[in-house]
Structure formats: C-alpha cells, structure tokens
Computed example of a mutant assay.
Amino acid sequence: MSAAPMVRTVPAMSRLELRPLAAADLPACGTLLADRHRRHRVAQPLLSARFEDPAVALAELTAAYETPDSSGVVAYRAGVPVGFVLGAPKPSPLWGPNIWVEAAGLAVTDAEVMRDLYAVAATRWVDEGRTAHYVVVPAHDAGLVRAWFRLGFGQQHAHAIRPAARLGTGTPAGLSVRRATRADIPVLAQLDVELPLHQGLSPTFSAGRVGTVEESLAEWAADFDDPAYTTFVAESNGRVIGAAVGCALEQSSGHLSLARPDHAGFLGFAAVFPDARGIGAGRALGAAVIDWAVSTGFDSVVTDWRVTNLLSSRTWPALGFAETFLRLHRLIR
C-alpha cells in the first residue's frame, strides 16, 4: 500500500471526513465489508457464507490492501467509519493504464458516500496516469450501482450464478450434444478463435487479442486430456457447430474473493459458428455444462459475460443465471 491523498472534509451538513485508507482502518472496514456481504447473500444465498465473518472479510481486504501500488480512501462520520474504496492496477496491457476496485475493495453504509470516496481516490489515480477505471459492484444493490453510474461509469461485464439443478428441457430437434473427443480438436481450435472474433464486433468492440488457429491447435493437443476440464460439442447434421467447457470455479482467474462461491462449477467457454447461431446450440451446450455440474456434485454453476455481447447476455439469463456482481468501467480522457 503506497501513499494516499490528503485528508478532505466534505462541506455543508454531511460532516463526512475523508482520509487515506491506512492499516489501522482495516478492521473496521472489514466489518463494513462483512455487513455488505451479509446483505448481498439475502439476495443471492448461493454466494459463500464465509465472508459474513468479519475476520474472513478482513483477510480479503488486507490482501487487497497489500497488493502492489494499491491506494484507497476511508470515510468517517462522527468518528465512525461509514465507507471505503480501495483499488490497485493490473499489469496486463489489455486494460490500459488502469485501476481496479475488486469485489473486496468497497463498502458503504450510504451509497452516496461512495461518490465522495471515489472523488478523492480518483484524484490520485488520474494524477498517476491511471485513466481506465474498473469496479466490481454487488448487482443487487441498485442504489450503489446508480451511485457509480452517476460517476460516469457504465456496465461492461456481468458475473452470474444459478443452482446446480438440471433444467429438464430437451435438446432442440436436429441438434445433439456429446463429450468432445481428440478427433474434434481441429474444430475446437477454430471455435477458440471464433469467440474473440465475435467479441471484437459491434456492439462489444472488445480489444482482446485474437489468437491463431495454429496456436489453439497446439494448446488443445497439449491439454485435451487434462481431467480438470470437460468439453462438450454440439452437432447438427453430423457437423460440429459449437463447443462449451466446464470446470471447477477454482480453475478460473475471475470470480475472485467475495465473488467466488464455495464448491461451484464454472461455464468457462462457449462458442457457436456464426452460420449455426439461432437454432439453440448455445443453450443446449450451456445445459450440458449445467447437467455435468450436477453430476459432478457442485452446489452451483457460475458464468460471466460481456453485457454488450448480445448472444451471451440473452442466452445465459435464459438458462437461469442471475447476476451477482457487475463490472463497471469508466475511461477518462
């Protein structure tokens, strides 16, 4: 944790004192975080109950505080902490000159306080040249989401969960779904490239790198037999038209900290060729991963999507996935 901005007192009747987040503030802020998560679980009981324990929430907050180049602000009213925000940069060039407020990086007793916290914290972030701001916010808290929207943020990504329970719906006529075999590797490699190509189109316009089929072929050949991942393919008229991959959520680099449910399966990848979309292949593949998660004994299934990806943002909620966290984004010019 590096140096932070100077103390600031909000004028008028608020009597809100804003100051750099310090190690001494962490226990009280950990309690705020645990309280936030307790309220969140009323709306989303599939989230982990562990983080309702202030000691566990404090451990997550402390880890975020100790992230290199982190900085944050805490708000006090009448000597009592009423909120904090804490961010840190990610080294990947994909995100630009960035700062990230992850799931353990914010909590307030009053959503409006978050706007004051950000105003002070962002002063430093922008002074450091970090102009791409990302924040992961509990989806159920409409007031808090609106506070971020009123700071110029927009929704970029959704994290979602559903119970590990079979859907009980059949595969559309003309489609079949089965486990992938090594003979499918060439088409799996093509589908690997198809997803980032789709994400790069309107209205998503993702800047993510599009790899080559040759790179994907090598990766599939090396990793196909890894028991940590289960791959399904969808066929129509004897042709593989799509694929999906399921695994334990622990295999994912996302859904971290308070956003990571216990003992959850993960729908980590799904893609369908453009000429085969609209016949239910994506839904059938998602259902196959959900059924696999049930058979494996997971308690829930998690996935995520870009909200500007019209296909995934419609298909996954239709399969019963409910938003848990929203990734919001602001780019400052």
Rank of each mutant, 00 (worst) to 15 (best):
F273H: 13
L249W: 06
G297E: 07
Q155K: 15
A142I: 07
R150D: 14
A243F: 02
P20G: 15
V82T: 10
V74D: 02
F266I: 03
V301T: 12
L331Y: 14
T123S: 11
G170H: 09
D299V: 05
A49F: 02
T212C: 05
A49S: 13
A49Q: 15
S176T: 14
G143A: 15
S257C: 00
R178M: 09
M114S: 13
A158V: 11
A147V: 00
A222G: 09
S295W: 01
A64N: 13
A183N: 07
I99P: 01
G208R: 15
N98H: 08
S2V: 05
W100D: 02
V7G: 01
T303A: 08
G268V: 06
L197R: 14
L188R: 09
L267Q: 09
R166W: 01
A88R: 15
L16E: 05
D110A: 15
A183P: 00
R19T: 03
F321K: 05
R146V: 00
P89E: 04
R179H: 07
E17H: 11
N98P: 01
V101L: 07
M114D: 02
Y118M: 14
R277M: 07
L319D: 05
N309D: 13
A318T: 03
A293E: 05
T123E: 15
L151Q: 13
P97I: 02
A139K: 10
Q190Y: 03
A147H: 05
A139N: 08
I279Q: 14
G105Q: 04
A173D: 15
Q199E: 12
A122C: 11
V126Q: 14
I332P: 00
V137L: 11
A88L: 06
